[in-house]
Design a protein around this nucleic acid. Sequence first.
DNA 1: CCGGTCCTCGTACAGCGTATTATCGTCGGG
DNA 2: CCCGACGATAATACGCTGTACGAGGACCGG
Lengths: 213, 213
Amino acid sequence: MVNESVWLRPARRERRPLTLDRIVAEAVALLDEEGEARLTMRRLAERLGTGSTTLYWHVKTKDDVLDLALDAVFGQVPLPEGGTWRQRAAALVTGWRAALLRHPWSTGLLDRPLMGPNALERTEFLYATLAEAGFTGPDLIAAAFSLSTFVTGSATMQARDPAGSGPGLARHLQQHRDAYPTLAAHGLDPDWDAAFTRGLAYLLDGMTPGANP
Amino acid sequence: MVNESVWLRPARRERRPLTLDRIVAEAVALLDEEGEARLTMRRLAERLGTGSTTLYWHVKTKDDVLDLALDAVFGQVPLPEGGTWRQRAAALVTGWRAALLRHPWSTGLLDRPLMGPNALERTEFLYATLAEAGFTGPDLIAAAFSLSTFVTGSATMQARDPAGSGPGLARHLQQHRDAYPTLAAHGLDPDWDAAFTRGLAYLLDGMTPGANP
DNA sequence: CCGGTCCTCGTACAGCGTATTATCGTCGGG
DNA sequence: CCCGACGATAATACGCTGTACGAGGACCGG
């Protein structure tokens, strides 16, 4: 359907051009508001004021949109400067985790290859920081592997069971307190942020640059 | 459609009854062979020799099938006995990771609440092992959090970039070697298993029972 | 004025999860 | 021995999905 009247048709300049950036930004907003299940090409197009199939000129598939949205989240992770290598690494992974938790849907996309420029830039930064600190060979790989693994894993866990996750898990544990005694005693409403900080300290304490050749 | 002939109709005992267990087992097999995207209620039913909507008598939604399939994977994780607490914890998380990697699709389901009996049993085992070792309070929570986070995170990473992941990531890194020099130098074809073992040692080295009250 | 190129959209299709409804097979009680 | 009831199965149908396709609109350099 063509816009019938000049008056109803948005003025030339008023209608912002559809760009890949606008699509990705709107996808992130939609995901933030309604979650992954409700992200639909049609709904996304509607919010952008375009036809749904128009999106396919800018993007090959819906998976592209998800990949780009995820990398946009990675783009929010600041690259810290200054301080010791340990401070820089801790700041990086803490900011990384915070970015993922600001957009909880992102943790559901962490399978699938992370080859976006923002993801690679952060990974490179991590490797470089550790290499500069003196980690080499298998130690370097293991250190980088452990830290990034720790970030994505902890974000996934926290997005899955948000603090005070309602009557769900907690009540279920209470009901089967006999089957899961330790869990029911300690794991009911844990402070995940504190656990992350302390766990990160464990990990960093355990790794020493130049220790194992 | 009714089976027309006695001869074509499967003999009484030959046709195994449709049970929840059979559905879940077949779902796991289908996921193993074709991955999550190709798991369809219709295809699953076809493999089971039933109509698709019949499944809905045993199961409320497709998500139920996925939850049950995931918990079935957790059921493959052995609960180690004997040895020090450190040996038991290491054995648990190693077996946990192996089970997830035997069914790579499982890492894509690690968002979503893990409330299945097998998952809870393993988590309880981990908490109990650490508590018995002397971890208490925030230290206990942080230790359990770190270990399970490390398992799920590392399995996700490895399922995402399997060893020798073809021309994909490696070539992309080579092409942009100037942008990601450290990554291109070290991260091309890493030994994830070795990185996991070493990283696990970091983590366990960093945590001491009864250290921080 | 006129191609040509970038961009937009309407239509259409196969496949999805699943609600509804009807029907089957089996078995216990009269 | 029948018959009703109930556990289990299946056919049909609905609304929604991702996206292929082709017909155009908008703008631009000549």
